[in-house]
Amino acid sequence: MKLLSGILIALSITAAPVLWQVADHHLAAPEPGVDETGPLRAEVAALRNELTQLKGRVDGLDARTSLGLAASAAPSEPQNQNPIASDTLKDAFAQVVLIADRRSANEGLTVASPSFLASVFGPPRDDLNDDCQPPTNQRLIELLAIEDVGPIRAQMIRPALVSLRQVFANVQVFEPELYDRIESAGSLCVRLIRGSSSSASAHAFGLAVDINIDGVLDELADGKTQLGLILLADFFRKEGWIWGAGFGREDSMHFEVSRQKIEQWRRQGQI
Results as ranks from 00 to 15, higher is better:
A233I: 02
L220E: 07
V111H: 12
G186C: 06
R266F: 02
A16M: 14
Q172T: 05
A10S: 10
D214T: 10
G68N: 13
D234G: 11
G186M: 06
T136C: 05
A154W: 00
S104K: 11
L47I: 15
R125S: 09
D87Q: 09
P123M: 12
D35F: 11
S197Q: 12
E239A: 15
I13V: 14
A85N: 08
R237H: 14
R57M: 07
L164H: 04
L164S: 04
V216R: 11
L98M: 10
R48M: 11
F121L: 12
A105H: 03
V44F: 07
P39C: 03
L231V: 15
I271K: 04
L232M: 02
V22E: 10
A42N: 14
L8P: 03
L161I: 15
D130S: 15
G246C: 01
P151Y: 01
D222K: 07
F174V: 08
E219K: 13
S187F: 01
D180P: 03
L161W: 10
A94H: 08
V120S: 03
D130R: 15
L3W: 11
G122E: 07
A245P: 00
D210S: 03
A42T: 15
G33K: 09
K261N: 02
D127S: 12
V120E: 03
G240L: 09
P151I: 02
R165Q: 11
D101R: 13
E50A: 13
G150K: 02
A73K: 11
